[in-house]
Structures are given as structure tokens and as C-alpha cells.
């Protein structure tokens, strides 16, 4: 009763040589219920080139999700503002470039998506942890971060502008 003849996730088995009851995914397969294949969404490519657009509309919810996922999965190394000085970097990881350098500001959204999906140099990919929609949400948030470091007063609404000006006077 305590140990019934079925496998819990990650339980050991003698059925397979590597001892894993939870089988790794067969490359090139799609699980039931997974989205019908969409190269723009999944590969981040349109006609074989890195996508210059997002596969979905960017809403406040998408940005909020992107921010949450960014803080969980990227900030340890890239820090919350994207300057590349996360806590792990202080303990000896190679320092990633800041997202605010001109080269990365000019890179298309598909480029950042590609780095998350396939990794880049010393950075391992995070495709096993993030579903495509979440990766795009993070890309959108990285875009927002980049914008935030180069924003001008004209970018904010009139009401916020007034508050900022009042605060600046203090």
C-alpha cells in the first residue's frame, strides 16, 4: 500500500538502462494539447530569419507576466534592471553584457528570444523551464527595461509628468 506498483515522477525503474521512470522527451515530438506548430511562436523565426515582431499582442498582463518570469529566471545573473550585475556574477560568473548597450537595444525581439531558447556563449538555454509564450513575455519586458533606461519626460502621460515635475522640484 505504501509503495504501489506505479511510478511517481522521477522514481527509479529497472525497465530502462538509465534508471529513469520519467522518460526524457523524444526530440522533434509534440505533446498532446500542445499548440499546433508555429515557427514564429516556437522558433522565434519568420521565413528562417530572426523575428522582428512579437507573435502576440503586448498587453499589460503580458508585461506583468514577463516581469515576474524575468525576476525568477534572469535576475540572478542579469539583475533586476538588466545591467548584468546579478548576485551570481558577484560570486564569479562571467559578467553578461548590459541590456542597455546599443547593440542589444538594436537587436530584434527574435534575438533575445533566440538567446533564451538556444543559449549564448557561457549562458545555458532556459527552454526547459520556460514555455514559448513566457519567453516572449520576458522579451517584451526586456524591451520595456531597455526603454526605461532611455526614457524622456515626453514618454509619460500628462498626469504622471506633473507629479514627476513636482517631485523633482522638492
Amino acid at each position: 500500500m505504501h509503495d504501489q506498483p506505479r511510478f511517481e515522477p522521477l522514481e527509479r525503474t529497472t525497465l530502462f538502462a538509465d534508471g529513469r521512470a520519467s522518460r526524457p522527451r523524444v526530440p522533434g515530438t509534440i505533446a498532446r494539447g500542445e499548440r499546433v506548430y508555429d515557427a514564429h511562436l516556437v522558433e522565434g523565426k519568420v521565413d528562417g530569419a530572426l523575428a522582428t515582431t512579437f507573435p502576440m499582442p503586448i498587453t499589460a498582463e503580458v508585461l506583468a507576466r514577463g516581469r515576474q518570469r524575468y525576476d525568477i529566471f534572469c535576475s540572478a545573473c542579469h539583475d533586476r534592471a538588466g545591467t548584468g550585475e546579478g548576485l551570481v556574477v558577484k560570486r564569479g560568473l562571467k559578467q553578461p553584457p548590459s541590456f542597455h548597450v546599443e547593440r542589444l537595444r538594436q537587436a530584434p525581439p527574435g534575438y533575445v528570444y533566440d538567446v533564451i531558447t538556444r543559449g549564448f556563449g557561457a549562458m545555458y538555454d532556459l527552454s526547459d523551464k520556460l514555455a514559448p509564450a513566457d519567453r516572449w513575455a520576458i522579451v517584451a519586458y526586456v524591451r520595456a527595461l531597455q526603454r526605461s533606461q532611455n526614457a524622456s519626460l515626453a514618454d509619460v502621460s500628462a498626469a504622471v509628468r506633473e507629479r514627476l515635475l513636482a517631485e523633482a522640484k522638492k
Partner: peptide, 28 residues
């Protein structure tokens, strides 16, 4: 959630694969 990735969507919280460790420990 960096390591126990599936805790929000599934019954099982998930134990990170070795690759997760190596993302940092290939350098640190």
C-alpha cells in the same frame, strides 16, 4: 521556481535537472 519549475502547474513540484546546476557551476 528557478529550480522547482512545475510547482505552480502540477501536483509534483519538480526537482531540477543537472543542467540547471551546470548553468552556474560550469563557471562558478
Amino acid at each position: 521556481r528557478f529550480c522547482h519549475t512545475s510547482v505552480e502547474e502540477s501536483a509534483f513540484a519538480g526537482i531540477p535537472p543537472t543542467k540547471t546546476c551546470m548553468g552556474c557551476h560550469s563557471l562558478v
